[in-house]
Amino acid sequence: MTIEEVFEVVRSSTAKVLDVDTSAMTLDGTLTDLGANSLDRADIVTQSMLELNVKVPAREFKGVTDIRSLVEVLRSQVS
């Protein structure tokens, strides 16, 4: 999958969890910018994993600081 395709999955998961307009969401922003608290972020990650049908070990998210790094971690697990 391309970065853009994985980003679209994260965007759609974010829209489902937060119920907000995500049209302005970019790879360089953060989920916190969109109003996500720590619970929402965990929810968005698990939702994205479900939609991508991947299981990412929790330790892989250690260096995630923004949407781009989240997308990269998820993409690295997609076969």
Partner: peptide, 14 residues
């Protein structure tokens, strides 16, 4: 690691 714990709680529940 609070964020990791929130994630694993949800992951395990599902």
């Amino acid at each position: 690691a609070a964020d990791r714990s929130l994630f694993t709680y949800l992951d395990c529940l599902d």
